[in-house]
Design a protein around this nucleic acid. Structure first.
Lengths: 194, 194, 194, 194
DNA sequence: GACTAAACGAGACGGTACGTCTTGTCTTTCG
DNA sequence: CGAAAGACAAGACGTACCGTCTCGTTTAGTC
């Protein structure tokens, strides 16, 4: 591969890369993930199939690149002073992301593909899910340092509960994540035992 | 279709039906859901492809039938006297089901397919997920009647949290559901505010 | 099979037999021989597939029955007094038959099937072609007895030439047999060497 | 399609083309035309089905290509000085071709298919039958120019008679074309009226 | 009038091939 | 030498029919 400079031969075409990612996203919206094909992406983007195969192992990876590009911008780790405020800020930005239907469609498709293709699953967890977990982990850490964090549940479980509930809404109930759910989660997690 | 009596024509073959379901499950374990094909199921089961297409709209529906047959047996709605005991009993049997790797593999594949094929998604929700939600809903209802149920979170949200967390473990972290997670969920949901 | 009397059981249904033959002919005209199927005949005629398979070995045999029923009526062996007149009468009635497009379509289909399915070919030759050859053979015999017949070509060859030319028009040139061709054949065959 | 140069993309594989034609001919001899399938040709030749569908509209067209390749070599237009000698030479080479059983089997199958599939029929007439008719037409023309040609029958009819008789032998009587038949045809056509 | 036998319409069955689609690879030509 | 173009082998798709096999029903003799 020839995307870094100083090597002989033609450089990777940034134009093609962007056209391929854009075509993949457009087609997913138009015909659904099931109807998305490498051939379709090539035709729409004006690229040759080989160019896609050269740089991505599967159509899901193209979409993952698209998602990562979009998502990168939207996970600031908040530091508002209290656990509750941080949590509200974090979930708020997650909610904002998750209320864009195109993004939700991508998420659902990629999570599905991750179940079916375990090598892609590895990449999806590493390149997308882990960043999210880490961000929430940092929020919890800040709270622990401040002494703001309830003793139970332990951080790992809290993370599972938060993301689990959000993902379950998307995957299983087809209801969107709403503000009320977020408040209930905050209430649950900031509550202290009697 | 000719499975009920009193109509002319040959009856549906129960033998084929069972052979097809069994073959589909076996193949899923052997080659994975991605490698599962209708042709493979037909070959393994000794059925013709048309026999499969006559009774099931997709390979996922065959597996759904297999899952429903397996799962039906394992959702008793417990009535142990207290919310906490009921919850523990319910999650315990869910845990037992979910610790069989073959079942978990089926669940992951079907949840994935439900994302990709929305008509199948409808059927999956209706024939599998809803039964589970209803069972837990009954548990919560019993607790409410007894006055055992905390004010927060509301039942619908509690259900989302429980199943969300369990599914998230399966889908996103690839760690099995364990006894500790169940206890932490019970603690979280039975806890009362100060 | 139970078409002769004196045996127990239901008799062959003449109604079905006729409906099947009629349906087969209609469908051949509508969708062509290539588009003709046993299932289609069954559906159109209101018969079950088994009823067709019980009495005919193939769809071509159904059409052969239809053809034999039609054709039987039209091969009188003429006896007009002279070879030339007999030949003209014989070819005239053959021409009349061959100018009905539905009949020609059947002939083409059955001759084709006879090439592809050699067992049907045997039956086609025996039940259709032979009758025609025999009729012309009788005409030639009458002429020989009268001393009317040219020495050359020998009768078998004359028969091949007559039917060959007629069939070739139908099969290879797609031009209909016309009166002019018939006259030229008569001229050729009744001519005597110098 | 990319068989002519100067265009991007991989060129048509001559190797595949020949393997497909060879496989089709072999299989026709082994299992008969009725048993010949595109899938069988693909399997035997090592080609993909798509490669066959890309270049030929039907299995009959593959065989037609095979026949044209074989037949091309064997229709010299003779010029022996007399009509009778030319005719004998022409029919002799036709006879030589027609006495190879593999060739006759191909001819029967293709003539049959031409009846059933009219678009193929068009191609068969254009690419095979017409060349033969033209060759004989040239022989007749030479004779006419020389003043060698009997007044009757007219050339078109003579052609129908010759090919009709030959084809009829192949299609309807299953007897091979033999030298005697050829002599009788020559006698008939070179004879002059009293 | 019950009993047996066979044909009937209906329709599911195991198969086979169809023609199409997509995959991932392999040339070929151009820039 | 990367990229677009497009042919290639492979193989699954979902459909259409094949010829066979139950089904329950109808129509004949036969007892």
């Amino acid at each position: 591969m020839n995307d870094q400079p100083g090597r002989p031969g033609r450089k990777r075409s940034e134009e093609s890369r962007l056209a391929i990612i854009a075509a993949a996203v457009e087609l997913t919206l138009e015909v659904g993930y099931a109807g998305l094909t490498i051939e379709g992406i090539a035709a729409r983007s004006g690229a040759g199939k080989q160019t896609i195969y050269r740089w991505w192992p599967s159509k899901a990876d193209v979409l993952l690149d698209a998602l990562v590009a979009k998502a990168e911008l939207h996970i600031p780790v908040p530091d508002e002073g209290t656990y509750e405020a941080d949590l509200r800020a974090f979930l708020g930005s997650t909610f904002a992301l998750g209320s864009r239907p195109q993004v939700v469609d991508l998420l659902r498709a990629l999570m599905a593909e991750a179940q079916i293709d375990s090598e892609f699953g590895e990449r999806f967890r590493e390149m997308f899910l882990r960043h999210r977990r880490d961000a929430l982990g940092t929020v919890l850490d800040q709270a622990r340092v401040r002494g703001d964090l309830p003793a139970s549940p332990p951080p790992e479980t809290a993370i599972d509960i938060v993301f689990g509930t959000l993902w379950y809404r998307i995957l299983a109930t087809r209801r969107d994540v709403d503000q009320q759910l977020i408040e209930e989660l905050i209430a649950l997690l900031t509550r202290r035992d009697r």
